[in-house]
């Protein structure tokens, strides 16, 4: 877990996520791993017992995990959402906006590049799952 990057104060779950099918059969499990083809909404009835959802990106170009993350946050999931797999520094700002608060990529992220990537965008055009107020809200004195 040396490379794990987290934006949470709580302790990380101590075991990795199991498949969605296995998770649904294990009433005491608190960690799950979503593959790109899994339906994140299948987890919604079980959010209360979840502490960790790993969303796997087998290749960085498969963007289904972005929707999975937002769907879980929109449903009120408050545990850790961790991006794992082929996660590159150029994606992490967008992933963070979709609700990810943990990153455990296959290839370690360069700390300096990571810092730049998260700090880069001072404003955003649209609401997402990170609670940032969009530019239109700032223009019209509204909050998102």
């Amino acid at each position: 877990m040396a490379e794990l990057l987290r934006f949470r104060a709580d302790e990380p779950a101590d075991h990795p996520g199991i498949t969605v099918d296995a998770f649904l059969d294990q009433p005491d499990a608190d960690a799950v791993r979503i593959e790109p083809g899994d339906d994140a909404r299948a987890l919604i009835p079980h959010l209360a017992r979840l502490r960790l959802v790993e969303v796997n990106f087998p290749i960085f170009g498969d963007g289904r995990g972005y929707s999975s993350a937002r769907i879980l946050r929109e449903a009120g999931y408050g545990g850790e959402l961790r991006a794992v797999g082929d996660v590159l520094v150029d994606q992490i700002a967008a992933l963070r906006r979709c609700g990810f608060d943990g990153f455990d990529p296959d290839q370690p992220l360069d700390p300096a590049d990571t810092e730049i990537a998260f700090a880069r965008w001072s404003a955003v055009y649209q609401p997402a799952a990170d609670g940032r107020a969009p530019i239109w809200a700032a223009r019209h004195g509204e909050t998102a």
Binding site: F60, G61, D62, G63, Y66, S67, R70, Q91, A93, A94, L95, R97, C98, W121, V124, Y125, Q126, A128, I135, W136
Partner: peptide, 14 residues
């Protein structure tokens, strides 16, 4: 245009 610019969820569409 503004909505779609840097839309985080749709940055890696099929």
């Amino acid at each position: 245009r503004q909505w779609s610019s840097f839309h985080p969820e749709f940055s890696a569409l099929p």
